[in-house]
């Protein structure tokens, strides 16, 4: 348990680099998938699984664990890489991503029995609602764990997200934290070109949420924001400003890398980029 509550900056950086490496390797091996969001969320997942979440890989069903719901199912590789690196299963299994018979489905599927996976998801706009159900259940049971949900920014164009935003606020779910991967891009291009989202913080505020914005690659800032949110009576949304494809300069911020993976020839260069980022 102790190793999952770290604030040691060097250790966190180490974890983030390893998670990115695992993401790159597993997606290259898979030959298809979504690289951009997984690399962009690596620091968020590092902060969550190695500092913020109360969890125990040896007891994935521990009733008092914090829940992490991945609403953007296409970012499954970063969840899988993080779970494996945290010890829920062997990292070798990451090589089975997207293959026949694998527990690592292209979008998360609980029916395949992967430990640590809270929800089968992939159709956008549903995770926040499911998280509300989990948060309400915790309240019914008098348990004080927190339910975290990770959403994409493009996902916020789904109307059901705002049904959920209304409901979480109406029911004063102070045990609910939504994290938005605010990378500003989606498959067709910049979010503000495809469908305007700004002023995004104001939208959430007007729905009754507490809003925090932070650099989604600054792990210390993320941890601070996610941990010290007590005495609130409303749910919290964290707009985590990230760069899609973070760590690989050639693809950073390039929306064309939303649904692409590196070729075997590209992989060594990309891994070298990660080592360079790790040193700086």
């Amino acid at each position: 348990m102790e190793s999952f509550q770290t604030t040691d900056g060097h250790l966190l950086r180490e974890h983030a680099t390893i998670i990115r490496q695992l993401v790159l390797q597993s997606l290259t091996e898979a030959g298809s998938g979504h690289l951009g969001a997984s690399l962009g969320l690596a620091d968020v997942f590092t902060a969550l699984y190695f500092s913020v979440l109360r969890h125990d890989p040896a007891k994935p069903q521990w009733p008092e664990r914090d829940r992490l719901v991945l609403s953007i199912g296409h970012a499954a590789p970063v969840l899988y890489a993080t779970l494996a690196h945290a010890g829920y299963f062997k990292t070798e299994e990451l090589q089975s991503l997207r293959k026949l018979g694998s527990r690592l489905q292209g979008h998360p599927g609980r029916d395949h029995g992967l430990p640590g996976l809270e929800l089968s998801a992939g159709s956008l706009g549903q995770g926040l609602s499911v998280a509300i159900g989990m948060a309400l259940a915790a309240r019914f049971d008098g348990l004080n764990h927190t339910v975290f949900v990770v959403m994409g920014d493009g996902e916020l164009q789904e109307g059901s997200v705002w049904e959920a935003a209304m409901a979480a606020s109406h029911h004063h779910l102070d045990n609910l934290v939504a994290i938005v991967d605010r990378n500003g891009v989606q498959i067709d291009g910049p979010t503000e070109k495809v469908m305007h989202l700004e002023p995004l913080a104001d939208k959430w505020k007007s729905f009754g949420w507490n809003v925090a914005e932070c650099d989604g690659h600054n792990r210390e800032q993320l941890i601070e924001t996610l941990k010290h949110r007590r005495n609130a009576t409303q749910p919290l949304v964290v707009l985590a400003h990230t760069i899609m494809g973070k760590g690989i300069p050639a693809i950073e911020g390039d929306y064309r890398w939303h649904g692409k993976v590196p070729s075997r020839e590209q992989l060594p260069g990309f891994l070298k980029d990660l080592r360079n980022m790790h040193k700086t």
Binding site: L119, V130, G133, M134, L136, A138, F140, E163, H170
Partner: peptide, 24 residues
């Protein structure tokens, strides 16, 4: 044990899924 969620069927169904995942 009654939860009012308003005229928002999509949210109602997915909230129900979250409750059921937790044993309700």
């Amino acid at each position: 044990r009654f939860i009012s969620l308003g005229i928002a069927e999509q949210n109602c169904v997915a909230v129900a899924a979250g409750l059921a995942l937790e044993g309700k």
